[in-house]
Structures are given as structure tokens and as C-alpha cells.
């Protein structure tokens, strides 16, 4: 599946909900279900301090593909992280660096990624892309 197909798949999943609370119920379930980072990786150097919720991000390259894991102390933030990782994982650094994550806007969650939102997600996406750019330089 291409990164664009993954984005489209998420958009389709969210299209079945017409109520905001249902959308969030789904995000919360994603947040609850996902063990997305090793507990021993919840370290200060991986911490992105938002004003409200905190996010931990770990990025590595395995067999030429980006592998992200992340966590947050807020479950909604964690659910959205789950979506971001689903889209970005197992992609080449070049793809991660250049992909426009339009699905966030398409499913109506762009407010969570605005730089003023202070839940750490905007910084997390930036860090994911920076890690990917770094990986292309290191090649």
C-alpha cells in the first residue's frame, strides 16, 4: 500500500462518522489499543514538551525504512499519533520527508496540528520529518 493509499484508507474510515463525538470515540479507541512505544523509551531526550499534553517520539531507520514509535499522556493525542505512525511507518525517508499529511485536514483534525495548539503534535510531525531528512543525508 502506498502512503497515499494509507491516507485514503483513514479518510474512508472516518467518513462513516458524521458526528464529532463518534469520531473522537474512534480516536480514543485507537489511543487505548495501541502500545506504540517501549516503556524504556519514555526518556527525556525523546520528550516533546507541549503546553498541555506531552509526546515522546523515537525514530529509527530499519532496512531503509523509517520506524517511528511514540506515546503521549493524553489519550486523544495518542490516538492521533497512532494514525500518523500508521501512515509514516515502513516508508522510505524520502517519502516521509516529502509527504503532505493531508488526511489530518480531510478528517477534520487539523486543529490538533496547528502550531499554536500546544499538544506537541505539530512538533512531533516536524521531528518525524527531520529524522527522515537526517536519514537521507546519512545514506
Amino acid at each position: 500500500m502506498t502512503i497515499e493509499e494509507k491516507q485514503q484508507e483513514i479518510i474512508d474510515e472516518f467518513n462513516i462518522y458524521d458526528d464529532w463525538m463518534e469520531k473522537y470515540e474512534y480516536i480514543i479507541e485507537l489511543g487505548k489499543d495501541l502500545p506504540i512505544i517501549d516503556p524504556d523509551k519514555l526518556t527525556d531526550d525523546r520528550l516533546i514538551e507541549g503546553c498541555q499534553s506531552r509526546v515522546w517520539l523515537d525514530a529509527e531507520v530499519k532496512d531503509g525504512k523509517m520506524q517511528f514509535s511514540a506515546d503521549s499522556d493524553a489519550i486523544i493525542t495518542k490516538g492521533i499519533i497512532g494514525l500518523l505512525i500508521r501512515v509514516m511507518n515502513d516508508e522510505t525517508p524520502e517519502t516521509v520527508a516529502k509527504t503532505d499529511l493531508h488526511f489530518i485536514k480531510d478528517i477534520g483534525l487539523q486543529e490538533h496540528l496547528s502550531p499554536t495548539r500546544a499538544n506537541g503534535l505539530a512538533s512531533m510531525v516536524k521531528k518525524m520529518k527531520m529524522a527522515a531528512i537526517q536519514a537521507t543525508i546519512n545514506k
Binding site: M21, C51, Q52, I75
Partner: peptide
């Protein structure tokens, strides 16, 4: 066991404006 940010986000979607954070 619940982060204030999560409650604030869900209250917002129910038309209620509160503040969360420090």
C-alpha cells in the same frame, strides 16, 4: 487517570468552552 486535555477536547465538541492546562 484521565488527562485534562482529553476532557477539554471532548467538552469542546459538546459545545462547552472550558480551559485545560496549567
Amino acid at each position: 487517570g484521565i488527562h485534562p486535555f482529553d476532557i477539554g477536547t471532548l467538552l469542546d465538541k459538546q459545545g462547552i468552552a472550558v480551559r485545560t492546562g496549567h
